[in-house]
């Protein structure tokens, strides 16, 4: 079992990054929709946004590390039989998701910090406000945060459909590769 990627598949680290980001991003998406509808007297009224902000910062850090890992590791080859358009679409969607995740986090950060407040991350450290804005900037930030998250949800759907197509229609190992780390010495195909 390899930690790093090879041309044939993903290593354990890349796989963990993928699933951690997936779980965090989906959790943030769902919690964001849920918590903004909470009543004033709900026990989660303050707690949920506190956690949402903190996990948003965690996701930002994780994405940064993941991006570095991706850039210093080989990218596994597409499975045999993958069409050129499929590969192009897959890569576009993947980079689109990276870009959207960063943009959504930045917008959410601004929504919470343009009044000069910091974001507290589990009481461990604070992310300070770097940009103060007057009236109404938080509305723009909030709208961008919301709508980009909706677009991202669409891309995640497309990404998932693609993976399922490879597995059930093309019957190749594309989906399996993101669950099973590549072996260190795999026989050359």
């Amino acid at each position: 079992m390899a930690l790093t990627n090879t041309r044939n598949g993903f290593g354990l680290v890349a796989i963990l990054f993928h699933w951690l980001v997936a779980v965090l991003a989906i959790g943030l998406f769902v919690s964001g929709l849920w918590m903004t509808g909470l009543g004033y007297y709900d026990p989660w009224y303050n707690r949920a946004p506190d956690l949402h902000r903190a996990f948003g910062v965690v996701l930002f850090i994780l994405l940064g590390l993941r991006l570095v890992w991706r850039l210093v590791n080989p990218v596994p080859r597409p499975e045999p039989g993958t069409h050129r358009w499929e590969r192009l679409l897959a890569v576009t969607v993947q980079w689109g998701m990276y870009l959207l995740l960063f943009a959504i986090i930045v917008a959410g950060y601004l929504l919470s910090t343009v009044d000069g407040r910091s974001i507290d991350v589990f009481g461990l450290f604070q992310v300070p406000s770097v940009y103060r804005a007057g009236d109404g900037f938080e509305d723009l930030a909030g709208d961008v945060h919301y709508w980009l998250a909706m677009v991202l949800a669409g891309l995640v759907g497309l990404h998932t459909l693609g993976a399922l197509k490879h597995h059930f229609i093309d019957r190749n190992r594309t989906l399996v590769r993101i669950f099973r780390p590549v072996r260190r010495r795999e026989p050359r195909q």
């Binding site: 946004p49 929504l111 919470s112 910090t113 343009v114 009044d115 407040r117 009236d135 109404g136 900037f137 938080e138 509305d139 909030g142």
Partner: peptide, 16 residues
């Protein structure tokens, strides 16, 4: 009404 300002950006967005 959009110019409401309670010195807390998230709350202001909620008030709007």
């Amino acid at each position: 009404t959009r110019s409401i300002d309670s010195n807390h950006s998230e709350r202001d967005r909620h008030l709007r």
